[in-house]
């Protein structure tokens, strides 16, 4: 009886193993499993994009924003930009147009501040706010955190112009990112975003961004030219370009309110 019991037990164990093996094979063959496995790899692309665009040092440049707005009219702004991604701070000071001369956005430990030279006062603003009323958003000038904020929902290979790209569809992994859904066209080597479509919570296209040119700054890449096209307001777009890019160390006092006030005297 005992032997039989053991045999039966072995037989049952064998059956269990076989069943488990079949399930595993089915699982591996199933599309869901494939996406799950694939997603794991594509997450790596997001990590690479963040890494490729992450600065450990400082960056300063002259940025030009050309806005086409059928409501407000066309406008060209030029800002002096100082960026320190190691502690997520930046300063942008308007040089053009005359009406915005001296205005500044200062992102430091206690938040993003807007400086108005007329009232000589700082007011607290938000990282989600559009930059200077353009299609660019303040978050566009922060260090990329795609791997942290998004999961890859699907991925395909394709081409964009002459480039071989990964086309990634992303879903926000937390409810506080500005764009809940994004679609990215990412170059294969190195992983850099060439085009991005940003969608609302209701999955409506809000804007399309193009990053045709990157400049090498140290080990990292920075988009030296970007175009943000509003998908809701016809004929509204913002072109952003960088010149005089420098990776020289920026003095600490640049990222202070006192500095912003001083340059406005």
């Amino acid at each position: 009886m005992k032997t039989q019991a053991i045999t039966l037990g072995r037989h049952k164990t064998m059956k269990t193993y076989f069943f488990a093996l079949c399930l595993s094979i089915l699982a591996v063959l199933s599309p869901n499993f494939a996406v799950a496995q694939a997603s794991e790899n594509y997450e790596e692309i997001l990590v690479n994009i963040d890494k490729n665009t992450l600065f450990t040092g400082d960056l300063s440049a002259t940025a030009t924003l050309e806005q086409r707005d059928p409501n407000e009219g066309d406008d060209v702004s030029r800002v002096q930009m100082f960026r320190r991604d190691s502690n997520n701070t930046f300063l942008m000071l308007f040089e053009k147009p005359e009406t915005k001369l001296g205005q500044g956005y200062l992102n430091i430990d206690d938040g993003l501040w807007f400086y108005d030279p007329e009232s000589r006062q700082f007011s607290y603003t938000s990282i989600s706010e559009s930059f200077g009323g353009t299609d660019a958003r303040n978050s566009d000038f922060e260090a990329s955190s795609l791997a942290l904020d998004y999961d890859v929902a699907s991925a395909t290979e394709g081409t964009l112009g002459k480039f071989e790209v990964w086309i990634l569809e992303l879903e926000a992994s937390n409810s506080e990112v500005t764009y809940p859904y994004r679609k990215l066209w990412v170059t294969k080597e190195p992983n850099l975003i060439l085009k991005s479509e940003d969608y609302s919570l209701t999955k409506r296209l809000l804007r399309t961004s193009y990053f045709p040119n990157y400049a090498k700054a140290g080990e990292s890449f920075i988009a030296s030219e970007s175009l943000f096209v509003d998908a809701l307001v016809e004929n509204k777009s913002t072109k952003f370009s960088l010149e005089n890019i420098s990776t020289a160390t920026i003095p600490d006092n640049v990222f202070t309110k006192a500095y912003v006030e001083r340059v406005n005297r």
Partner: peptide, 15 residues
């Protein structure tokens, strides 16, 4: 017409 706003969580939304 289209209405665009920000959700209570700070996300962009359109309807």
């Amino acid at each position: 017409i289209v209405v665009k706003t920000t959700t209570i969580n700070g996300q962009q939304n359109v309807g």
